[in-house]
């Protein structure tokens, strides 16, 4: 079998059958293991995401469980470590930060052609932007309080330092800026004069060292939550870019203008000042104005690096999921507008 070629003999077996074969290895005491109602979920651009129902017999009983499969695609918006995402779900499960239970991580491509992991499905939830706006007053305190909880966590205490690279308080900004600048270098299909000007500004005006090195979710925005019909956040998803760093990075990402609603509310649910106030109270950290401004501008550079990379993936043909093209078209110019606004040059 050749990894990357899904037309070979093993790929002709259905994904359901192959998944069931894998799960049989993981559940040796179970019998009659079946995977049913497998359905791909639209969106997740860094991994293919499927929901399915696992049924099996064990100890004389028929059991079933609704699960999520997250499989690496041939190409993705961002190159991410599945072990990091899996490790983050493991670390935060059962803490005040709500996440689904992560069950199995598989790096061997023999099972489904590409590495993957499986976690529980949080059933009956939604992440609809209109619903979020309607429940803004309830969601906003939860959203930034949970982010404060993430910032407070000692990475070593939850064991996540084993899968995330250590970084010193004064190195956080350099490492992140260097990483995302390199993504633009590697993936830009045309010059990015606005992002390049922002990068030069960021290097000339560094932020203060991190008050604390903590876990950074790195894509903490309203669209990555699941909440119930009462407006209670039940799960924080999409930890694929998580790393150790300055917690201000997460706060700034959520404040980015590209996630604002038409009325200017950050993440569509709160004023900028309200969000910062909730986060400061929950995290016990201070959002130093210069440092926060630095991280907000950085967020736009990182965003542009993601949109540039999505355009490259789509153009190269490694992954032609429409979400990659629409993300580049939809967000690239908006991110440039955000940079201009943050630097005081918006038209």
């Amino acid at each position: 079998m050749t990894v990357g070629d899904r037309t070979d003999a093993s790929a002709e077996r259905s994904l359901e059958d192959r998944l069931a074969a894998y799960l049989s290895e993981q559940l040796p005491s179970a019998e009659d293991i079946r995977v049913v109602d497998l359905e791909r979920i639209f969106g997740g651009a860094s991994r293919e995401t499927y929901r399915f129902v696992l049924t099996y017999r064990e100890e004389g009983e028929t059991r079933s469980r609704r699960l999520i499969l997250r499989r690496d695609p041939p190409g993705s918006l961002i190159e991410t470590e599945r072990a990091v995402e899996f490790g983050a779900y493991r670390a935060f499960h059962g803490t005040p930060v709500p996440v689904p239970e992560a069950l199995w991580l598989e790096e061997d491509p023999k099972w489904l052609d590409y590495p993957f992991f499986i976690m529980e499905e949080i059933v009956g939830m939604q992440s609809n932007a209109r619903f979020a706006s309607q429940h803004a007053k309830k969601l906003a305190p939860q959203k930034w309080t949970i982010l404060g909880e993430i910032a407070k966590v000692d990475p070593a205490a939850v064991g996540i330092d084993a899968v995330m690279e250590a970084v010193g308080p004064d190195e956080c900004w350099k490492r992140e800026l260097g990483y995302w600048e390199k993504q633009i270098d590697r993936n830009e299909l045309c010059p990015q004069p606005i992002a390049r000007a922002a990068i030069r500004w960021l290097r000339r005006n560094p932020p203060l060292p991190a008050q604390r090195v903590g876990v950074v979710h790195a894509d903490y925005r309203t669209g990555n939550f699941l909440f119930d019909e009462h407006g209670v956040i039940r799960a924080i998803l999409d930890w694929e870019m998580a790393h150790l760093g300055d917690p201000l990075e997460d706060l700034a990402w959520g404040l980015n203008p590209v996630w604002r609603s038409a009325d200017g509310r950050v993440g569509g649910i709160a004023s900028r000042e309200e969000a910062i106030g909730i986060w400061e109270k929950a995290s016990g950290l201070r959002a130093d104005p210069h440092s926060l401004r630095w991280w907000e501008l950085f967020s736009s550079v990182k965003g542009q690096a993601i949109w540039v990379s999505s355009a490259k993936e789509f153009t190269d043909g490694k992954n032609q999921d429409l979400i990659l093209a629409v993300a580049a078209w939809l967000m690239g110019n908006r991110q440039d507008c955000a940079i201009l606004s943050e630097l005081g040059y918006a038209s």
Partner: peptide
């Protein structure tokens, strides 16, 4: 900077946003 601001206006597409 004025030209860069003008460049974003030229590229604006009528598409919905994300959150």
């Amino acid at each position: 900077w004025r030209e860069l601001a003008a460049s974003t206006e030229r590229r604006t597409l009528p598409l919905p946003g994300l959150t």
